[in-house]
Amino acid sequence: MSNVRPRIRLPRSARAGDVVQVRTLISHPMETGNRRDPDGNVIPRQIINRFTCEYDGKMVLDVDLGVSVAANPFMEFDVKVERAADFVFTWHDDDGSVYSETQHLELS
């Protein structure tokens, strides 16, 4: 699917041992499969069905999403940071696409 844009907010600074808050959002209609177009045809389901976040190669969060998650799925969660490392985020689309984003966290 095109026009899918992930947005990620990491803390500006963190120290080793901190628990930091991460917020992510991805632009996506999360089409439920329950709606019909003006001609009465069912609009097929197309959602982000899975979201994952890894930090420093370790799993933070692995989420299965259903159709009752609002459009532009938003996730806010907590990560324990031990050192400067990459965050890797993935979003899995019903159409088989995987949108991935990597961000580096520097420690102060």
Binding site: V19, V20, T32, N34, E54, Y55, D56, K58, M59, V60, L61, D62, V63, D64, L65, G66, V67, S68, V69, A70, P73, F74, M75, E76, F77, D78, V79, K80, V81
Partner: peptide
């Protein structure tokens, strides 16, 4: 109509078993 909204597993780098999201 589809009651199961979200399943989340917290991994070893999780800072707390907490999740905020937005529902329909």
């Amino acid at each position: 109509p589809t009651p199961r909204v979200v399943d989340a597993r917290f991994g070893e780098a999780s800072g707390a078993p907490r999740l905020a999201t937005r529902l329909r």
